[in-house]
C-alpha cells in the first residue's frame, strides 16, 4: 500500500502535502522511545508516535521509514514540517489515540 492510500482510507492530515506520498509501506512500528525505533524499525515502516520534534524527522530519514503518523491530533511546528519536506518524509496526523490507530492500520496492512 502506498502512503497516499493510507491517507485516503484513514482520513489522515498530510502536514507535508504531497511530499513522499508515493512511497510504498512495508509494515509499521509504534514507539515513543527514539532508540527503540532506531534499533528496531525497518525500512518502509509507518512510524506511529506522539513524539513531535526535529529528531523524529532525523530518525525517519536515517531509517528510510515510509512516513510518520502523529496521534491524538498532535500538530507539528512549522520548522518540523519544513525539515520533513526537505528530507522528503511525509508527516501525517490522526485524531485517534495510538491503540485505535494501530488497530486500523494493522487491519489495512494485513
Amino acid at each position: 500500500m502506498k502512503v497516499s492510500e493510507l491517507i485516503e482510507k484513514l482520513g489522515l492530515t498530510a502536514f507535508t502535502g504531497a511530499v513522499g506520498v508515493e512511497r510504498e509501506i512495508a509494515g509499521g512500528y509504534t514507539s515513543d522511545l527514539l532508540s527503540d525505533v532506531m534499533g528496531n524499525a525497518k525500512e518502509g515502516n509507518v512510524w506511529i508516535t506522539l513524539q513531535n520534534h526535529m529528531n523524529v524527522i532525523a530518525i525517519a530519514s536515517l531509517k528510510e521509514l515510509a512516513c510518520i503518523i502523529l496521534v491524538k491530533g498532535i500538530t507539528p511546528a512549522p520548522e518540523i514540517i519544513e525539515k520533513a519536506i526537505a528530507e522528503e518524509i511525509p508527516v501525517l496526523g490522526s485524531n485517534e489515540n495510538t491503540f485505535n490507530l494501530n488497530g486500523k492500520i494493522y487491519a489495512l496492512l494485513n
Binding site: 515513543d32 522511545l33 527514539l34 532508540s35 527503540d36 532506531m38 534499533g39 513524539q51 520534534h53 529528531n55
Partner: peptide
C-alpha cells in the same frame, strides 16, 4: 521527555 535516555544507546551500538 524527547524520547531519548531509555538506556538503549550503547547496547544499540554494540549490537550493530
Amino acid at each position: 521527555e524527547m524520547g531519548f535516555g531509555a538506556g538503549m544507546g550503547l547496547p544499540n551500538i554494540k549490537k550493530n
